[in-house]
Simulated assay, not measured.
Amino acid sequence: MEKSLSGGRFLLVTVLNVIITIFELLGGLLSGSLSLLSDAFHNLGDALSIVLSYAAHRIGGRQQTRTNTFGYRRAEILAALLNSGVLIVISLILAGEAVRRLLHPEPVKGDIMLLVAVVSFLANLLSTVLLNRGSKHNLNIRATYLHLLSDALASVGVIVGALLITIWQVSWVDPTITILVALYICYESLPIVKQTFGILMEASPDLDFEGIARDICALPEVEGVHHLHAWQIDENNIVVSMHVNMDNVPISEIEPIYRQIEALLCQKYNVNHVTIQAECHRGEDESLFYQQNDWRHS
């Protein structure tokens, strides 16, 4: 996250969302609009999300320690997963209430709904602009940014609904908009949940593993590669470990080969950290990926 996105900007966005939440809660109660109340709950979630996101970023920026040798970057992944998961749960709850409203319509005051929606849209739009820069390369900020963007889009829907209710008195528009916005939020949030869950479960990043093995085996003195592992610390940092079969040469001749492998993986495959175990004949018949019983035959 860029330095410009810390401190002042996060405080401003948090204050904006607290104000919007109170404004929309009052407007939703006065107008009877479910879509305004749903927007208010989303904004409350936004405020909590921003605080959590900022705290996770500060924790993630800490240096590695004896107890956390890879550092604390996973704090931001946890925050992204929590933010997106909460957003999906809230959306589903509000969608259920919207279905109830469709079956049992309630009167809505379109004029109050319209005024509150316009003010909320402008405030949400300002919040998304403030966080837009950091959302492209950070899952934590992207999850928070999606919170804000979803509320801006929800406000647009509420504005349209308020106009229709004011002009034509069609009460079904309000819960329908709530359902559509909830579906959109789930659609945008599920990929983040999937990606963060994959990182936390040590799922392999999208790498050409056969290509990696082929390129490494093409280097001088390298005979084979096995027991290759790859995982992500966060969405930007890939770690790889492997066993490499080499000719029986002194350590002084192995180190330049290590550097070639590290440079290859960094430049061609965007790998940030490599751990290599050199072997002569041990494991030369084993598979590229570790099999649970391989060590018994080494």
Score class of each variant (00 low, 15 high):
residue 270 N to R: 14
residue 196 T to N: 07
residue 93 I to K: 04
residue 150 S to Y: 03
residue 270 N to E: 04
residue 221 E to P: 07
residue 31 S to Y: 02
residue 200 L to H: 15
residue 51 V to I: 11
residue 4 S to T: 13
residue 150 S to T: 11
residue 162 A to Q: 04
residue 215 D to I: 14
residue 195 Q to I: 07
residue 109 K to W: 05
residue 246 M to Q: 07
residue 130 L to N: 01
residue 243 H to L: 11
residue 48 L to E: 08
residue 148 L to Q: 02
residue 218 A to V: 04
residue 71 G to Y: 04
residue 127 S to N: 01
residue 166 T to S: 10
residue 157 G to M: 00
residue 228 L to Y: 08
residue 35 S to C: 15
residue 179 I to C: 05
residue 220 P to N: 12
residue 214 R to I: 12
residue 94 L to T: 12
residue 112 I to D: 02
residue 188 E to T: 14
residue 40 A to W: 03
residue 161 G to L: 00
residue 223 E to N: 14
residue 244 V to A: 05
residue 123 A to T: 05
residue 7 G to F: 06
residue 227 H to K: 11
residue 193 V to W: 02
residue 30 L to A: 09
residue 147 H to W: 04
residue 226 H to A: 14
residue 201 M to I: 06
residue 23 F to A: 06
residue 132 N to S: 14
residue 212 I to H: 09
residue 96 G to C: 03
residue 44 L to H: 00
residue 29 L to D: 03
residue 12 L to R: 11
residue 270 N to K: 13
residue 168 W to C: 03
residue 50 I to Q: 05
residue 237 N to H: 13
residue 219 L to V: 02
residue 231 W to R: 07
residue 67 T to M: 13
residue 175 P to M: 03
residue 196 T to D: 06
residue 268 K to I: 07
residue 213 A to R: 09
residue 285 D to N: 10
residue 267 Q to P: 11
residue 233 I to N: 02
residue 293 N to Q: 14
residue 276 I to G: 08
residue 162 A to N: 00
residue 180 L to C: 15
residue 32 G to S: 07
residue 85 G to N: 04
residue 69 T to Q: 14
residue 89 V to C: 08
residue 85 G to R: 08
residue 99 V to R: 06
residue 211 G to L: 14
residue 92 L to F: 10
residue 153 L to N: 02
residue 288 L to Q: 04
residue 74 R to E: 04
residue 171 S to C: 11
residue 140 N to A: 03
residue 163 L to I: 13
residue 201 M to S: 12
residue 36 L to V: 08
residue 22 I to D: 07
residue 168 W to K: 04
residue 275 T to G: 13
residue 170 V to G: 00
residue 289 F to D: 07
residue 172 W to E: 12
residue 276 I to K: 10
residue 281 H to F: 12
residue 102 L to H: 02
residue 237 N to T: 14
